[in-house]
């Protein structure tokens, strides 16, 4: 069975120019390793392909039990000049959380 990322993690979107920055934080810190295996930079790039034209880099933060996804060329030129409705990309945390992942049983 598949579940959505939104059921086990939360996220906040930020922007720097044309770069979209998405954090990913599990509600239960024991899900950190599962997320580390499952939500790779490649998967995020594929999931947000319509939005992110450039590279996606993932930072793994074990002390914080969190991840940071930095997505380049992702905000149709950036907040000051973009024609998009949501020029900052502030709503895109919830686009990441739409990702479907395999359900799992906690060990």
């Amino acid at each position: 069975m598949k579940i959505r990322l939104s059921s086990i993690a939360h996220s906040r979107a930020g922007d720097k120019g044309n770069t979209l920055i998405l954090s990913l934080i599990p509600f239960d810190k024991d899900d950190f390793e599962f997320l580390e295996r499952t939500v790779t930079a490649e998967r995020v790039k594929a999931h947000l392909a319509h939005q992110v034209k450039g590279e996606v880099i993932r930072y793994v933060l074990p002390e914080l039990r969190a991840f940071q996804f930095v997505c380049f060329d992702a905000l149709s030129s950036g907040v000051t000049t973009s024609l998009a409705m949501d020029a900052h990309g502030k709503s895109l945390s919830y686009a990441l959380l739409e990702m479907e992942i395999q359900d799992y049983t906690k060990g």
Binding site: R12, G14, D15, I21, I25, A66, Q68
Partner: peptide
């Protein structure tokens, strides 16, 4: 945590 990572 969400704020620490915001725009970083």
């Amino acid at each position: 945590k969400e704020q620490l990572l915001y725009e970083v």
